[in-house]
Design a protein around this nucleic acid. Structure first.
Length: 273
DNA sequence: ATGTCGGATGCGATCCGA
């Protein structure tokens, strides 16, 4: 079986960013692309343009204006399923099987959590914590079935000190507070998920996938955070072969504030399902 | 507190969410 390439990207509107998405597909030729913040209803999703580029297999879960996730693939998808975390239909998680690869792909967009890292005064932050708790519980109920799952998405948490440009300063900033890091760790424990990037890179090496629009020269300032993650279940850990943050895409005008994350799997080295 | 995006509303400028 050849190497498998997966890319995940928070596009911040798939319609606004369609030329950049097509360029990404052309230049990186992934088997599967996971998109977050598509910000489009399913009826208006640019299905034909992506199909024309060689990606006719698409699972999408959109809503007007906000959120929205999609999995687009060169290989057939099966068993497409949406999951409403906390019972809310807000287009944040979609699941699909890739039968050719004997793999499940999950595409996730975790709530950002607002500006104030206090669940007492900021309902958005409380909601983010509740979302992570509910998702952890949901996955924990799968435990025992040893599946080959790849979870891709914008988890809106940068867990390690070197996942942000300034650990001390950002410890009081939403995305890097201890309480969020604790909740993300619980989610990771739910299925013993392996964080692909940190499995392939020492923890003390800075890795970022997001740079705010508000910093003038993002590359020079480099005030980034690693908000976008690819996690795999234990049978896939031996298959992890490489990753790349495609920072060049952060400059494709008009840019998303996230860079795509590419992960390569060598499925010959994976465990069985 | 600020900075800059994208979408929705409703048709212009403002609000929400990020």
């Amino acid at each position: 079986m050849p190497r498998v390439r997966l890319v995940t990207w928070n596009v911040n509107s798939v319609r606004k960013r369609l030329p950049q998405v097509l360029r990404l597909l052309e230049e990186t030729a992934p088997d599967v692309l996971c998109l977050q913040e598509t910000k489009v209803t399913d009826a208006l999703f640019p299905a034909a343009a992506l199909a024309e580029m060689g990606y006719p297999h698409q699972a999408r879960y959109g809503m007007p204006g906000y959120n929205g996730v999609a999995i687009v693939s060169r290989r057939p998808l099966a068993g497409v399923r949406r999951h409403d975390v906390l019972g809310r239909p807000d287009a944040r998680l979609i699941l699909a099987q890739v039968p050719d690869l004997d793999l499940d792909v999950h595409c996730l967009y975790v709530p950002a959590g607002g500006d104030v890292p206090d669940p007492e005064t900021n309902p958005r932050f409380a909601d983010k914590l509740a979302f992570l708790d509910a998702l952890a519980e949901w996955y924990a109920a799968w435990f025992g079935r040893i599946d080959r799952i790849v979870l891709c998405g914008d988890v809106n948490v940068a867990p390690l000190p070197r996942d942000v440009w300034d650990h001390r300063r950002l410890s009081r900033v939403v995305t890097h507070t201890p309480v969020e890091i604790d909740r993300l760790a619980r989610l990771r424990s739910s299925l013993l998920w392996v964080d692909a990037v940190r499995d392939l890179t020492p923890d003390d090496e800075p890795v970022f996938t997001w740079w705010s629009y508000r910093a003038g020269d993002w590359r020079t300032a480099n005030k980034g955070r690693r908000l976008d993650h690819v996690w795999v279940t234990p049978p896939l850990a031996p298959a992890l072969a490489g990753y790349a943050v495609l920072t060049e895409a952060r400059d494709w005008r008009p840019p998303s504030d996230h860079a795509p994350l590419l992960v390569t799997l060598d499925l010959d080295r994976a465990g069985a399902e």
